[in-house]
């Protein structure tokens, strides 16, 4: 039976390598046919912020990869509302990441779900494996 894996992203996309290497784990994990979801909280919400351009800092912009997650069967990206609010962000500041629903004539549907801290704790409680980055 498939297990529920949650990848918990808490850190900004640049400045440390956690976000990039977390995404590398997620892409490998997708091949194992488990139930995979991602959560973004604290500074981790910046990982899926729109309009990233870290070129001047000599870093590679890896944020387009999040758009490919749907093709890997990863369609649940939870974002904590309180983390957005604390940083002066709204859902409008996030990349419009979508997936094609194969059970609904491949209609494009949003992968990002903004949820409350209380709902986030509920989702964490439902997991079999939580990997925190």
């Amino acid at each position: 039976m498939a297990k529920k894996f949650l990848y918990l992203n808490r850190k900004a996309p640049y400045g440390t390598v956690y976000a990039l290497e977390s995404l590398e784990v997620v892409l490998i994990a997708a091949a194992f046919e488990q139930e995979v979801s991602l959560a973004f909280l604290d500074d981790g919400v910046y990982q899926i912020a729109k309009g990233q351009n870290p070129k001047a800092a000599g870093m590679k912009n890896f944020s387009p990869t999040y758009n490919a997650l749907g093709d890997y069967g990863i369609t649940q990206l939870y974002v904590e509302r309180e983390s957005l609010v604390e940083r002066g962000l709204t859902e409008e500041d996030l990349m419009p990441i979508v997936y094609e629903d194969e059970n609904d004539e491949y209609a494009e549907k949003p992968s990002v779900q903004v949820i409350s801290r209380a709902e986030m704790s509920q989702i964490m409680a439902e997991q079999d494996v939580t990997l925190s980055f």
């Binding site: 894996f5 784990v25 490998i28 994990a29 091949a31 194992f32 494996v129």
Partner: peptide, 16 residues
């Protein structure tokens, strides 16, 4: 990295 995922699947608990 598959070794990590396999660990998560095969173990009762995964601790980071």
């Amino acid at each position: 990295l598959g070794q990590l995922i396999e660990g998560g699947i095969e173990s009762d608990r995964t601790i980071v």
